[in-house]
Design a protein around this nucleic acid. Structure first.
Length: 350
DNA sequence: AATAGAGGCAACCGCCCAGGG
DNA sequence: GCCCTGGGCGGTTGCCTCTAT
């Protein structure tokens, strides 16, 4: 097990710091530096543990700390970096001068996370949310928002995010509805709206319907975005994500015909619907999830190799014409997991 | 004006890892 | 190779403030 908490040592103060304590810590650190944090409190005359002093200094008292609200650039950067790095707050913090990992973590948990959730984006995966409850709610949201009317008072950044999310969500809904339509006309199940999973005939599997090796080609978003050139390759994305990119522009619907569908007219309808999505998106161009502007990237802090790597990944993500959302789709399709991902969704729907 | 609930944030906790002996 | 220690990190807690009722 881990070591016992250092503050268990008898009599050491915990909790909020007083201005006097802060001043003592600042005075000591500015004249002596921290040296060993463990011995620091005694030397500085503080009745605190070294760890508490270190946290207080690094998270609050350090002179280079920038306080106050996060700018939109910072928000964008955090979202981008989080999509690349995940919950590596300290690594994210190295790209935001004057911000601490703790502050970024708090900001993420209290604001950005909720913001993304509201926009229908899973903050963990940065992919559109696919849970059925959310999709059920979505139709109501979309109808009430009437596709963009709700962005009047939003910032341009929020509007862009929202519009993109709306488009993606609308496409998702329509995808699911069309899937259901296909399924209902192919199997004996008849549904005109999203059924409760318990009410659904689970004996039909989509892989059986379309051929066991074709499920990864089921993603209609490849077709969806193919006409708008938003779904392009992303050569610079994170190497650990297999490096290679599937040439998605030529990767979509023909495979269904080549696969197990055998020219079933229902599936032709499905195809037609997908090309309708193309038109929908063409007529309503989807903004990037985040702007490609790197803003103040804090590149002066790129000191470690790890940081350089983060920066490269980040800059790749930034410079790509496909921003996070599309990257996520791209990656989704490039990922082995995507097969089971879509399979899960489809089997859930079935 | 009082109160409950939500949100924001500082601080703590527990685990992990690297480095030194 | 093992143990100990310092330092770092991510997750969580709890307090304070704000807002709605």
């Amino acid at each position: 097990m881990g070591r016992p908490p250092c503050c268990d040592e008898n009599g050491l103060k915990k909790g909020p710091w007083t201005p006097e304590e802060d001043q003592m810590l600042i005075d000591y650190l500015t004249s002596h530096g921290h040296g060993s944090w463990r011995s620091l409190p005694k030397l500085a005359g503080l009745n605190r543990c070294g760890k508490s002093c270190r946290l207080r200094w690094t998270n609050y008292l350090r002179p280079d700390i920038k306080r106050g609200k996060f700018s939109e650039d910072e928000e964008r950067m955090i979202i981008n970096l989080h999509s690349v790095l995940g919950n590596k707050w300290s690594r994210i913090a190295t790209h935001l001068p004057g911000r601490t990992d703790n502050e970024i973590k708090n900001f993420w948990n209290t604001c950005l996370r909720k913001k993304l959730l509201k926009l229908g984006i899973d903050p963990e995966t940065h992919k559109p949310r696919m849970d059925m409850n959310h999709l059920m709610n979505l139709s109501q949201l979309l109808s009430s928002a009437q596709f963009g009317n709700s962005t009047v008072n939003a910032s341009p950044w929020e509007s862009a995010l929202k519009l993109q999310a709306d488009a993606a969500q609308l496409a998702k809904l329509q995808l699911l509805q069309n899937l259901l339509q296909v399924i209902s006309t192919t199997s004996t199940t008849t549904t005109s709206s999203l059924p409760h999973p318990d009410q659904i005939n689970r004996t039909t599997s989509i892989s059986g319907l379309l051929g066991s090796h074709q499920t990864q080609n089921l993603n209609p978003f490849l077709g969806l975005f193919s006409g708008t050139n938003t779904m392009v390759q992303n050569p610079g994305f994170v190497p650990q994500d297999k490096g290679s990119q599937v040439p998605v522009l030529n990767h979509s619907w023909p495979s269904i015909d080549q696969g197990g569908v055998d020219g079933d007219h229902d599936h032709l309808d499905f195809k037609t619907n997908i090309s309708n999505y193309d038109r929908l998106i063409s007529e309503n161009p989807i903004p990037e999830l985040v702007s490609p502007s790197p803003g103040t990237s804090g590149s002066n802090q790129m000191e470690s190799n790890k940081s350089d790597h983060d920066h490269q990944a980040y800059m790749s993500a930034q410079s790509s014409p496909t921003s996070n959302m599309f990257e996520a789709w791209d990656k989704l399709m490039d990922d082995e997991a995507s097969e089971s991902y879509w399979k899960d969704i489809l089997e859930y729907v079935l």
